[in-house]
Amino acid sequence: MLRRSFVLGCAAAAALLLGSVQPSTAADRFITVASTTSTEDSGLFKSILPKFTEKTGIEVRVVAKGTGQAIDIAKRGDADVLFVHHKPSEDKFVAEGFSTERKPVMYNDFVIVGPKADPAKVGGSKDVSAALKAIAATKAPFVSRGDDSGTHKSEQALWKTAGVDPTTGDGWYRAIGQGMGATLNTAAAVNGYAMTDRATWLSFKNRGDLDVLVEGDKRLFNQYGVMLVNPAKFAHVKAADGQAFVDWLVSGEGQKAIADYTINGNSLFFPNASEPGA
Protein backbone atom coordinates (compact mmCIF):
# COMPACT_ATOMS: atom_id res chain seq x y z
CA MET A 1 0.00 0.00 0.00
CA LEU A 2 2.73 2.41 1.04
CA ARG A 3 4.74 1.42 -1.97
CA ARG A 4 1.87 2.03 -4.31
CA SER A 5 1.32 5.50 -2.89
CA PHE A 6 5.01 6.10 -3.35
CA VAL A 7 4.93 5.14 -7.01
CA LEU A 8 1.78 7.14 -7.66
CA GLY A 9 3.23 10.06 -5.76
CA CYS A 10 6.37 9.96 -7.87
CA ALA A 11 4.30 9.93 -11.04
CA ALA A 12 2.18 12.83 -9.81
CA ALA A 13 5.22 14.83 -8.82
CA ALA A 14 6.85 14.18 -12.18
CA ALA A 15 3.74 15.27 -14.02
CA LEU A 16 3.39 18.44 -11.97
CA LEU A 17 7.07 19.20 -12.40
CA LEU A 18 6.80 18.84 -16.15
CA GLY A 19 3.79 21.10 -16.11
CA SER A 20 5.62 23.83 -14.24
CA VAL A 21 8.94 23.79 -16.08
CA GLN A 22 7.13 23.98 -19.40
CA PRO A 23 8.23 27.32 -20.88
CA SER A 24 5.23 29.57 -20.71
CA THR A 25 4.79 30.44 -24.36
CA ALA A 26 1.12 31.25 -24.05
CA ALA A 27 0.99 35.01 -24.32
CA ASP A 28 -2.06 36.61 -22.77
CA ARG A 29 -2.89 38.27 -26.05
CA PHE A 30 -3.38 36.00 -29.02
CA ILE A 31 -5.71 35.38 -31.93
CA THR A 32 -6.52 32.09 -33.65
CA VAL A 33 -6.32 32.08 -37.43
CA ALA A 34 -7.85 29.27 -39.50
CA SER A 35 -5.77 29.02 -42.63
CA THR A 36 -4.51 26.66 -45.30
CA THR A 37 -1.61 24.25 -45.42
CA SER A 38 0.02 26.18 -48.30
CA THR A 39 0.56 29.32 -46.20
CA GLU A 40 1.92 27.33 -43.25
CA ASP A 41 3.94 24.62 -45.03
CA SER A 42 5.58 27.07 -47.43
CA GLY A 43 7.07 28.93 -44.47
CA LEU A 44 5.22 32.20 -45.22
CA PHE A 45 3.71 32.49 -41.75
CA LYS A 46 7.04 31.79 -40.05
CA SER A 47 8.47 34.68 -42.02
CA ILE A 48 5.73 37.33 -41.66
CA LEU A 49 3.99 36.61 -38.34
CA PRO A 50 6.93 37.61 -36.09
CA LYS A 51 6.87 41.05 -37.76
CA PHE A 52 3.20 41.51 -36.88
CA THR A 53 3.65 40.20 -33.34
CA GLU A 54 6.63 42.49 -32.76
CA LYS A 55 4.64 45.52 -33.84
CA THR A 56 1.39 44.83 -32.01
CA GLY A 57 2.20 42.37 -29.21
CA ILE A 58 -0.49 40.04 -30.54
CA GLU A 59 0.53 36.39 -30.92
CA VAL A 60 -0.99 34.63 -33.96
CA ARG A 61 -1.90 30.95 -33.54
CA VAL A 62 -2.41 29.25 -36.89
CA VAL A 63 -4.50 26.15 -37.40
CA ALA A 64 -3.55 25.01 -40.91
CA LYS A 65 -6.06 22.79 -42.74
CA GLY A 66 -7.52 22.53 -46.24
CA THR A 67 -9.68 25.51 -47.24
CA GLY A 68 -12.91 23.52 -46.75
CA GLN A 69 -11.99 22.49 -43.21
CA ALA A 70 -10.60 25.93 -42.33
CA ILE A 71 -13.92 27.50 -43.32
CA ASP A 72 -15.75 24.94 -41.20
CA ILE A 73 -13.58 25.80 -38.17
CA ALA A 74 -14.39 29.49 -38.63
CA LYS A 75 -18.10 28.77 -39.10
CA ARG A 76 -18.17 26.96 -35.75
CA GLY A 77 -16.68 30.04 -34.12
CA ASP A 78 -13.38 28.34 -33.32
CA ALA A 79 -11.21 30.98 -35.02
CA ASP A 80 -11.04 34.77 -35.00
CA VAL A 81 -9.75 35.20 -38.54
CA LEU A 82 -10.13 33.14 -41.73
CA PHE A 83 -7.32 33.30 -44.32
CA VAL A 84 -7.93 30.98 -47.29
CA HIS A 85 -7.88 30.71 -51.07
CA HIS A 86 -11.17 29.95 -52.79
CA LYS A 87 -13.07 33.09 -53.66
CA PRO A 88 -16.51 31.53 -54.31
CA SER A 89 -16.42 29.84 -50.86
CA GLU A 90 -15.19 33.06 -49.24
CA ASP A 91 -17.98 35.11 -50.84
CA LYS A 92 -20.48 32.53 -49.59
CA PHE A 93 -18.97 32.77 -46.09
CA VAL A 94 -19.59 36.54 -46.13
CA ALA A 95 -23.05 36.21 -47.70
CA GLU A 96 -24.09 33.84 -44.91
CA GLY A 97 -23.15 36.49 -42.35
CA PHE A 98 -20.09 34.74 -40.89
CA SER A 99 -18.05 37.81 -41.79
CA THR A 100 -18.88 41.33 -42.82
CA GLU A 101 -16.05 41.87 -45.28
CA ARG A 102 -13.55 39.87 -47.34
CA LYS A 103 -10.31 41.52 -48.33
CA PRO A 104 -8.02 40.28 -51.10
CA VAL A 105 -4.44 39.82 -49.85
CA MET A 106 -2.18 38.10 -52.37
CA TYR A 107 -2.02 35.42 -55.02
CA ASN A 108 0.28 32.62 -55.90
CA ASP A 109 -0.06 30.20 -58.76
CA PHE A 110 -0.65 26.55 -59.36
CA VAL A 111 1.63 24.42 -61.49
CA ILE A 112 1.25 20.96 -62.98
CA VAL A 113 4.13 18.71 -61.95
CA GLY A 114 4.87 15.35 -63.48
CA PRO A 115 7.57 12.82 -64.32
CA LYS A 116 10.55 14.09 -66.32
CA ALA A 117 9.84 11.33 -68.90
CA ASP A 118 6.49 13.12 -69.46
CA PRO A 119 4.41 10.44 -71.25
CA ALA A 120 1.64 12.98 -72.05
CA LYS A 121 4.18 15.41 -73.62
CA VAL A 122 2.84 18.46 -71.78
CA GLY A 123 6.21 19.90 -70.68
CA GLY A 124 6.65 23.60 -71.45
CA SER A 125 2.97 24.12 -72.24
CA LYS A 126 1.22 27.27 -71.05
CA ASP A 127 -2.25 25.93 -71.88
CA VAL A 128 -3.54 24.05 -68.85
CA SER A 129 -6.70 22.81 -70.62
CA ALA A 130 -4.73 21.23 -73.45
CA ALA A 131 -2.32 19.71 -70.92
CA LEU A 132 -5.12 18.10 -68.89
CA LYS A 133 -6.71 16.73 -72.06
CA ALA A 134 -3.37 15.20 -73.08
CA ILE A 135 -2.89 13.61 -69.65
CA ALA A 136 -6.42 12.14 -69.79
CA ALA A 137 -5.83 10.86 -73.33
CA THR A 138 -2.63 9.00 -72.39
CA LYS A 139 -4.20 7.75 -69.14
CA ALA A 140 -1.01 8.66 -67.29
CA PRO A 141 -1.48 8.52 -63.49
CA PHE A 142 -2.79 11.82 -62.06
CA VAL A 143 -2.90 12.21 -58.27
CA SER A 144 -5.61 14.54 -56.93
CA ARG A 145 -6.08 16.01 -53.44
CA GLY A 146 -9.70 14.87 -53.40
CA ASP A 147 -10.19 16.60 -50.03
CA ASP A 148 -12.50 19.53 -50.83
CA SER A 149 -9.62 21.96 -50.31
CA GLY A 150 -9.20 25.18 -52.28
CA THR A 151 -6.61 23.49 -54.48
CA HIS A 152 -8.91 20.52 -55.10
CA LYS A 153 -11.83 22.81 -56.01
CA SER A 154 -9.63 24.76 -58.43
CA GLU A 155 -8.38 21.52 -59.97
CA GLN A 156 -11.96 20.31 -60.49
CA ALA A 157 -12.85 23.62 -62.17
CA LEU A 158 -9.88 23.23 -64.54
CA TRP A 159 -10.94 19.69 -65.55
CA LYS A 160 -14.38 21.09 -66.27
CA THR A 161 -12.88 23.84 -68.46
CA ALA A 162 -10.89 21.15 -70.28
CA GLY A 163 -14.12 19.25 -70.91
CA VAL A 164 -12.86 16.07 -69.23
CA ASP A 165 -14.51 14.17 -66.38
CA PRO A 166 -11.49 12.38 -64.88
CA THR A 167 -13.52 10.44 -62.32
CA THR A 168 -14.97 8.21 -65.05
CA GLY A 169 -11.47 7.04 -66.06
CA ASP A 170 -10.25 3.54 -65.37
CA GLY A 171 -7.97 4.12 -62.41
CA TRP A 172 -5.44 6.61 -63.80
CA TYR A 173 -7.08 9.46 -61.82
CA ARG A 174 -6.39 8.90 -58.12
CA ALA A 175 -8.17 11.10 -55.56
CA ILE A 176 -6.40 10.36 -52.29
CA GLY A 177 -8.32 12.64 -49.90
CA GLN A 178 -5.22 14.12 -48.27
CA GLY A 179 -3.18 17.32 -48.06
CA MET A 180 -0.85 18.82 -50.65
CA GLY A 181 2.27 17.20 -49.21
CA ALA A 182 0.75 13.73 -49.11
CA THR A 183 -0.45 14.22 -52.69
CA LEU A 184 3.05 15.13 -53.85
CA ASN A 185 4.53 12.20 -51.91
CA THR A 186 2.09 9.91 -53.72
CA ALA A 187 2.75 11.47 -57.12
CA ALA A 188 6.49 11.01 -56.57
CA ALA A 189 5.93 7.37 -55.61
CA VAL A 190 3.79 6.46 -58.64
CA ASN A 191 5.68 8.85 -60.95
CA GLY A 192 2.44 10.56 -61.88
CA TYR A 193 1.12 14.05 -62.56
CA ALA A 194 -0.37 16.37 -59.93
CA MET A 195 -1.49 19.96 -59.55
CA THR A 196 0.13 21.85 -56.69
CA ASP A 197 0.51 25.42 -55.52
CA ARG A 198 3.98 26.69 -56.36
CA ALA A 199 4.75 27.62 -52.75
CA THR A 200 4.32 24.08 -51.45
CA TRP A 201 6.28 22.71 -54.41
CA LEU A 202 9.26 25.03 -53.86
CA SER A 203 9.57 24.04 -50.22
CA PHE A 204 8.82 20.34 -50.86
CA LYS A 205 11.79 18.01 -50.47
CA ASN A 206 10.74 14.52 -51.57
CA ARG A 207 10.41 15.32 -55.28
CA GLY A 208 11.66 12.04 -56.69
CA ASP A 209 11.65 12.26 -60.48
CA LEU A 210 9.02 15.04 -60.64
CA ASP A 211 9.47 18.44 -62.22
CA VAL A 212 7.29 21.46 -63.07
CA LEU A 213 5.80 20.86 -66.53
CA VAL A 214 2.94 23.35 -66.98
CA GLU A 215 2.98 26.89 -65.61
CA GLY A 216 2.12 30.48 -66.48
CA ASP A 217 -1.51 30.03 -67.57
CA LYS A 218 -3.66 32.84 -66.13
CA ARG A 219 -6.23 30.23 -65.14
CA LEU A 220 -3.68 28.82 -62.71
CA PHE A 221 -3.64 31.96 -60.55
CA ASN A 222 -4.76 31.38 -57.00
CA GLN A 223 -6.18 34.30 -55.00
CA TYR A 224 -6.08 34.49 -51.18
CA GLY A 225 -8.59 36.43 -49.10
CA VAL A 226 -8.81 37.30 -45.41
CA MET A 227 -11.88 37.81 -43.22
CA LEU A 228 -12.59 38.65 -39.60
CA VAL A 229 -15.14 36.21 -38.19
CA ASN A 230 -18.29 38.21 -37.44
CA PRO A 231 -18.32 39.19 -33.72
CA ALA A 232 -22.08 39.74 -34.00
CA LYS A 233 -22.37 35.99 -34.66
CA PHE A 234 -19.86 34.84 -32.02
CA ALA A 235 -19.47 37.15 -29.02
CA HIS A 236 -16.10 35.67 -27.98
CA VAL A 237 -14.36 36.60 -31.26
CA LYS A 238 -11.42 38.90 -30.55
CA ALA A 239 -12.68 41.59 -32.88
CA ALA A 240 -10.14 44.36 -32.23
CA ASP A 241 -7.03 42.14 -32.35
CA GLY A 242 -8.38 40.10 -35.26
CA GLN A 243 -9.18 43.25 -37.23
CA ALA A 244 -5.66 44.54 -36.47
CA PHE A 245 -4.25 41.43 -38.16
CA VAL A 246 -6.55 41.77 -41.18
CA ASP A 247 -5.65 45.46 -41.55
CA TRP A 248 -1.93 44.73 -41.20
CA LEU A 249 -2.00 42.06 -43.93
CA VAL A 250 -3.44 44.49 -46.47
CA SER A 251 -1.36 47.47 -45.28
CA GLY A 252 1.81 48.56 -47.06
CA GLU A 253 3.87 46.97 -44.32
CA GLY A 254 2.10 43.60 -44.45
CA GLN A 255 2.14 43.53 -48.25
CA LYS A 256 5.87 44.21 -48.25
CA ALA A 257 6.47 41.41 -45.73
CA ILE A 258 4.63 39.01 -48.06
CA ALA A 259 6.58 40.18 -51.13
CA ASP A 260 9.87 39.87 -49.24
CA TYR A 261 9.42 36.16 -48.56
CA THR A 262 11.40 34.08 -51.05
CA ILE A 263 12.91 30.60 -51.28
CA ASN A 264 16.18 30.40 -53.26
CA GLY A 265 15.34 33.74 -54.82
CA ASN A 266 11.87 32.63 -55.95
CA SER A 267 8.94 34.77 -54.81
CA LEU A 268 6.15 32.58 -53.48
CA PHE A 269 3.28 34.99 -52.97
CA PHE A 270 2.46 38.21 -54.82
CA PRO A 271 0.63 40.87 -52.77
CA ASN A 272 -2.35 42.45 -54.54
CA ALA A 273 -4.57 43.91 -51.81
CA SER A 274 -5.14 47.07 -53.86
CA GLU A 275 -6.18 45.23 -57.03
CA PRO A 276 -9.89 45.81 -57.61
CA GLY A 277 -12.02 42.68 -57.78
CA ALA A 278 -9.19 40.34 -56.70
Binding site: T37, D41, G179, M180, G181, A182, L184, N185, A188, S203, F204, K205, N206, R207
Partner: peptide, 9 residues
Amino acid sequence: ALETSKGDL
Protein backbone atom coordinates in the same frame (compact mmCIF):
# COMPACT_ATOMS: atom_id res chain seq x y z
CA ALA B 1 2.90 14.07 -39.70
CA LEU B 2 3.72 17.66 -40.65
CA GLU B 3 7.29 16.93 -41.80
CA THR B 4 6.03 13.95 -43.80
CA SER B 5 3.56 16.23 -45.56
CA LYS B 6 6.39 18.64 -46.33
CA GLY B 7 8.28 15.78 -47.95
CA ASP B 8 11.11 15.94 -45.40
CA LEU B 9 11.10 12.20 -44.76
